[in-house]
């Protein structure tokens, strides 16, 4: 079985608010203050694929990223987690294209790599939070699509997957070659690679693919061709002065807390 996982590298989303600032020219976050990391949902996706491989055996996992040179680190980490192959579609543009364009580029690259039994993406990325690339990718490839998946089993007909909903979950049967987006759950926390595997990952080759290889014309990928683009980006000002409840002793403090809660409740 051949599995493919789409991986995106992003600015570390867990940096504290005080270290976050904006590049007003480029309308994106300043990259100087934070590390580049693999998007967490992509790691959940890889973990889900690894577990599927463990359960069926005889499978290979390819990870693919459309990104800059720095994205090699994310691909190496995926190899250290025991993905089999890695492919970097090099973005040498001056901007980061929107989800629709990204999916178009990824779809061309995936087609050039061959066919896959299941394609994984994360549910959304921690920078722009679009949550659209997986859907666009399925449309580009003209294959079935199921988002918010957190569990996958192989069946005779394809796969049986669990999808999280607002109020619980659903199980679906999906055919082979579908695109699924993966969300976090208590059983797909990404594994920590072993030191030995990290060292081994540096010996593996990462296949590099250029726009020319995919016969995509770069002049079709300018910011003007994006269907969605930022026109403003700012840090919202939002701090309220918290009243810290003080008191002679704990009992007095909890009394005040109860008062405040009842006060709000009485307005309902």
């Amino acid at each position: 079985m051949k599995l493919l996982v789409c991986i995106k590298q992003i600015l570390d989303p867990e940096i504290p608010v005080r270290d976050f600032s904006i590049d007003r020219e480029k309308l994106e976050a300043d990259s100087a203050n934070a590390n580049q990391v693999t998007n967490i949902f992509c790691e959940n996706a890889l973990e889900t694929a690894l577990q599927l491989r463990d359960s069926v055996g005889e499978s290979s996992i390819t990870v693919i990223c459309f990104g800059r040179e720095s994205a090699e680190d994310s691909l190496r980490k995926a190899l250290a987690m025991k993905a089999d192959e890695a492919c970097l579609v090099m973005n040498d543009l001056n901007h980061t294209p929107d989800s629709a364009t990204t999916a178009h580029v990824l779809a061309s690259a995936i087609e050039s790599l061959g066919s896959f039994d299941l394609i994984f993406t994360g549910r959304e990325s921690g920078d722009w939070g679009n949550g659209q690339t997986g859907a666009y990718l399925a449309e580009e490839l003209k294959v079935p699509y199921l988002p918010f998946v957190d569990d996958i089993k192989q069946t005779d007909k394809g796969f049986e997957v669990r999808r999280q909903t607002e109020s619980g979950w659903e199980r679906y049967g999906i055919p082979a070659s579908s695109v699924v987006t993966i969300t976090n759950s208590d059983h797909n926390l990404p594994r920590i690679p072993k030191t030995r595997d990290i060292m081994m990952s540096h010996r593996k080759t990462i296949t590099r693919v250029s726009f020319e290889d995919l016969k995509i014309r770069k002049d079709e990928l300018n910011p003007q061709s994006d269907s969605v683009r930022p026109v403003k980006l700012f840090v919202p000002e939002k701090e309220s002065a918290c009243e810290f409840i003080e008191g002679e002793n704990l009992n007095a403090k909890i009394d005040q807390l109860a008062d405040k809660i009842m006060e709000i409740r009485s307005t309902l």
Partner: peptide, 13 residues
Amino acid sequence: VYGGKATAVMELQ
């Protein structure tokens, strides 16, 4: 966007 650290105005072309 950026996990709530920023607000963006996006234009749909």
